[in-house]
Amino acid sequence: MAYKVLVINPGSTSTKIAVFEDETLIMEETLRHSSEEIGKYKSIYEQFQFRRDVITKALKEKNFEISTLSAVVARGGMLKPIAGGTYEINETMLEDLKIGVQGQHASNLGGIIANDIAKELKIPAYIVDPVVVDEMDDVARITGLPGIYRKSIFHALNQKAVAKRYAAENGKSYEEINVIVAHMGGGVSVGAHKQGRVVDVNNAVDGEGPFSPERVGFIPMGDLVEMCFSGKYTYEEIKKLINGKGGFTAHLNTNDAREVIKLANEGDEKAKLVLDAMTYQVSKEIGKCAAVLFGKVDAIILTGGIAYNEVITNAIKERISFIADVVVYPGEDELEALLKGALRCLRGEELPKEYK
């Protein structure tokens, strides 16, 4: 039996959609939203009907009959911490997406829109591996200050997808392998995957791990405290420095790794040093994950948009290839990753999980 699946991935200024028949792509669209359109709404949830209508319009313009769909799957939002996997959308999840139980993000709309379309058609609606996937060992959560614990917020969808891809290409299941996955995009997350669980990973949002094109990563806490109480910055400005205006953006006024490489190749010493520092920090984070896995590492996977840059991947390989073989899967095909999660449930290869 063939399955037709609608995939929805909302971003801050766009909504990506695709329709697949099994693994075959039927249509794909990136629906752009202007700042004027988005700016009319006071909250993420208030954008629901607008984005729902834009999707419906795009499908009609492509003459796609939604009544032929078997399921709808969407990128998960800022839910409560959950284990990885595919979840069937339920009322508890919808309520948490509406209020943004761990924060406001456009991805919160994905499950709400998917459920609305699926409910009308009486078909299943799913989310897959949202950024709040939390499978960390308890020992990884402890900090030196009681009451403050490390959180698992990372590029779970792509990290899990490439780890499963590596396992399949090597004739194994995800639950049989130990791999380290470094996702490098606007943010960088490096996860230790141990037999189907991400047992440790840096919080790619709140200042852990390597710096990236837009994020500061780890910085000395004493200096950060001084900044916070200097009177020069508001709370919102500090948060934006940590996530949005840090990394390459702070040092070189660009969040484009290609531009940084170009500057370095043209002899810009500052650009070269900053670039070297990022690859150094990514490599060091990979080394930390190797310790988490007791050195038993089947492979190290480099992925994300920055993994297209061989200058960066080669620099990282030079430092960490002694740990294990290094595999590069550049990019992040989130639409396909979401599809595969839905198909596994539709085909009975795994049961959808229940969000509580």
Rank of each mutant, 00 (worst) to 15 (best):
I8A: 09
I8M: 05
P10G: 08
G11I: 09
S12C: 04
S12Q: 03
S12I: 04
T13K: 07
T15C: 13
K16H: 08
A18Y: 06
A18H: 08
A18D: 01
V19Y: 04
F20E: 03
E23A: 11
T24K: 15
M27T: 14
E28A: 15
R32D: 08
E36G: 00
Y41Q: 08
Q47P: 00
V54A: 14
L59C: 07
E61Y: 08
K62W: 06
K62R: 15
F64H: 04
E65V: 08
I66E: 13
S70K: 10
S70Q: 07
G77T: 02
I82L: 12
A83F: 13
G85L: 00
I89S: 10
I89R: 09
E91A: 11
D96S: 05
K98L: 07
G100E: 09
G100I: 05
V101C: 08
Q102T: 13
G111N: 04
I112H: 03
D116I: 03
E120D: 14
K122Q: 12
P124I: 05
D129W: 01
M136S: 10
D137S: 14
I142K: 15
I142P: 01
T143D: 13
G144Q: 11
L145P: 01
G147D: 02
Y149T: 14
R150M: 07
R150L: 13
K151I: 12
S152K: 11
N158F: 12
V162E: 00
A163I: 00
A163S: 13
K164S: 00
N178R: 03
V179I: 04
A182G: 06
H183K: 09
G187H: 07
G187R: 04
V190W: 02
A192R: 02
A192L: 05
H193R: 01
H193M: 00
V199T: 13
V199R: 07
V201A: 08
N202Y: 02
P210R: 01
R215A: 05
G217P: 06
P220I: 10
P220L: 09
G222V: 11
L224H: 03
V225W: 08
M227L: 15
F229Y: 15
G231I: 10
Y233G: 02
E237S: 14
I238Y: 08
G244K: 06
G246W: 08
L252I: 10
L252K: 09
N253S: 15
N253T: 10
N253F: 10
D256P: 07
R258L: 13
I261R: 12
L263F: 10
L263D: 01
L263W: 13
N265I: 04
D268I: 09
E269D: 14
K270Q: 12
Y280N: 14
Q281Y: 13
Q281K: 15
S283M: 10
E285N: 14
E285P: 11
K288V: 14
L293K: 04
K296A: 15
D298N: 14
I300R: 06
I301L: 14
T303R: 09
T303Y: 05
T303C: 11
T303Q: 07
G304N: 12
I312E: 12
N314H: 15
I316F: 12
I323D: 07
A324I: 10
V327T: 12
V328T: 13
E332Y: 06
E332W: 05
E332C: 03
E332S: 07
L338M: 02
L343S: 07
R344I: 02
R347L: 11
R347N: 11
E350F: 02
E350K: 06
L351Q: 11
K353Q: 05
K353S: 02
